[in-house]
Computed example of a mutant assay.
Amino acid sequence: MKNTALILAMTAAFGTFNLAHAEGPDPAALKGMYDTGRNMSGLINHCVDKGFLKADSTENAKKMVAFVAGIPGGMDKSDGDKNEARGRKGEILENGEYKSLETSSLGLKEWCQQADEGMRQGLKSVGL
């Protein structure tokens, strides 16, 4: 996954919050944001476990999940635990399918660093 695509994915998840307020929450979009956020949280933990990120990254992942989970609109959170667990195994959720980060063209270390940066930028964009 390219850096630009990753950062766009993270900021889109945060940016959709404003869109949801403007047009009314879309249940499918909210579920997608939550599932992606939980999977990203697991992936960040995977990166910390591998030694590519520091422990503070997990705190940011928790902030991201809490932010997304707090978006009003009655989102379906039923797959959250599963998506986070798959992320902890190094599996990224893309377009409804899981793919191993081990096969990333960036390599795991670089992917982890770019994902962390994307998450930090997303949090900053919403004031967290």
Rank of each mutant, 00 (worst) to 15 (best):
1 M>A: 04
2 K>F: 03
3 N>W: 00
5 A>V: 08
5 A>Y: 11
10 M>T: 12
11 T>E: 12
11 T>F: 11
12 A>Q: 14
12 A>F: 13
15 G>A: 04
16 T>G: 09
17 F>I: 14
17 F>N: 11
17 F>R: 13
18 N>K: 08
18 N>P: 02
19 L>D: 09
21 H>R: 12
21 H>M: 12
21 H>Y: 13
22 A>F: 12
22 A>L: 13
23 E>A: 12
23 E>H: 10
23 E>Q: 04
25 P>Y: 08
25 P>L: 10
25 P>R: 07
25 P>V: 13
26 D>M: 10
27 P>T: 00
30 L>I: 09
32 G>E: 14
34 Y>Q: 04
36 T>F: 13
36 T>K: 07
38 R>M: 07
39 N>A: 01
40 M>D: 07
40 M>G: 07
40 M>R: 00
41 S>G: 15
41 S>L: 11
41 S>N: 15
45 N>I: 07
47 C>W: 10
48 V>S: 07
48 V>C: 06
48 V>K: 09
49 D>K: 10
50 K>F: 00
50 K>H: 06
53 L>Q: 11
53 L>M: 09
54 K>I: 03
55 A>N: 15
56 D>I: 03
56 D>F: 02
58 T>H: 03
59 E>Y: 00
60 N>Q: 11
63 K>V: 07
68 V>E: 01
68 V>A: 01
69 A>L: 04
69 A>G: 05
70 G>D: 06
70 G>C: 04
70 G>S: 13
75 M>Y: 05
75 M>E: 03
76 D>E: 12
79 D>F: 07
80 G>T: 07
81 D>Y: 02
81 D>R: 08
82 K>A: 15
83 N>C: 14
87 G>Y: 08
88 R>L: 05
89 K>A: 15
92 I>P: 00
93 L>Y: 10
93 L>D: 03
95 N>G: 13
95 N>C: 10
96 G>L: 02
96 G>C: 05
98 Y>G: 00
98 Y>P: 03
101 L>I: 09
102 E>T: 08
102 E>H: 06
103 T>S: 12
106 L>Q: 14
108 L>Q: 08
108 L>E: 15
110 E>V: 06
111 W>K: 03
113 Q>N: 03
113 Q>T: 02
116 D>V: 07
116 D>H: 14
117 E>A: 11
117 E>D: 11
118 G>D: 05
119 M>R: 09
120 R>Y: 04
120 R>E: 06
121 Q>Y: 13
122 G>T: 09
124 K>M: 05
124 K>S: 11
127 G>Q: 04
128 L>Q: 09
128 L>C: 00
128 L>W: 04
